[in-house]
């Protein structure tokens, strides 16, 4: 469905209020095709609202947004063909098995051979063994992996990930990061929201900081770093972080 030229996502002057609360006060940005874009902000900054508008779940009060060349208000159906949304909480069916979840989404996207698609994704996300088990028995990381696997069905060119690693343990976080990197390597455009600075640093080609409903900076990591005074050279003993200790003890190669 990459039938359109130009940026994968174009947002211009987006505004949204809930009663008196002005959540978005004129948000504008663009995301280039095949890149990873991080929308960084603290809780309540408006990240989820922006994602919901871009994925046609909410209507903006003002401004325009185009996803894969389609207007989110006027061409919502085309936008939905072009995207997948992975919300803040793993949107998986607990009562079904992992494989059944994948088959369900493949059917709802009207694809041929849902079973084959499901088996292929289970393999890619190392869930083959767990595929027949009910999702209720999965760990948080497995659930998130399944969630992301469900988002890849039909290979939508634009993928929204709303706080994909919130509430995950360090290992699961690394698994999700790897999955996101693989997605972008496969040509997809990824917009992710996060409140973790290191996550944006690790993954994103461009980072925008959303604060009180406005984008206050937007640039590459190098550009953002240049906003501060040049680094001074100091000699500091390199102590392992607790995360390094934890990961080496439980035996994961980070």
């Amino acid at each position: 469905m990459t039938n359109q030229q130009g940026p994968a996502i174009q947002v211009n002057g987006l505004e949204k209020s809930y009663k008196e609360l002005r959540v978005l006060r004129g948000v504008s940005f663009e995301v280039a095709r095949g890149s990873i874009f991080a929308l960084l902000g603290s809780n309540g900054a408006g990240k989820t609202t922006a994602v919901k508008i871009l994925s046609t779940l909410l209507k903006a009060d003002a401004g325009t947004a185009r996803v894969n060349g389609f207007d989110v208000a006027a061409q919502a159906a085309d936008v939905r063909e072009s995207i997948s949304l992975t919300g803040q909480f793993a949107a998986v069916d607990e009562i079904l098995s992992g494989r059944e979840n994948l088959v369900l989404v493949a059917r709802l996207r009207h694809l041929k051979d849902p079973g084959g698609i499901a088996d292929d994704l289970l393999r890619r996300f190392s869930l083959t063994e767990a595929g027949g088990r009910r999702v209720a028995t999965y760990s948080g990381g497995m659930r998130r992996r399944l969630d992301i696997a469900m988002s890849l069905i039909g290979e939508p060119p634009v993928i929204f990930l709303d706080e994909p690693t919130t509430g995950l343990d360090p290992q699961a976080r690394i698994e999700v990061w790897q999955a996101v990197k693989d997605l972008a390597a496969g040509g997809a455009t990824v917009l992710l929201t996060t409140q973790y600075l290191d996550e944006a640093e690790q993954l994103a080609d461009r980072i925008a900081i959303l604060h009180e409903g406005r984008i206050i900076v937007n640039g590459t990591l190098a550009e953002l770093k240049r906003l501060l005074p040049p680094a001074k050279v100091e000699y500091v003993e390199k102590q392992p972080s607790l995360e390094d200790v934890f990961l080496s003890l439980v035996g994961t190669k980070a």
Binding site: T56, L85, G87, A91, V92
Partner: peptide, 13 residues
């Protein structure tokens, strides 16, 4: 609650 409703609503379904 689970968010699966939103997933369905954001799909070409």
């Amino acid at each position: 609650q689970g968010g699966i409703f939103e997933r369905f609503q954001s799909m070409p379904t």
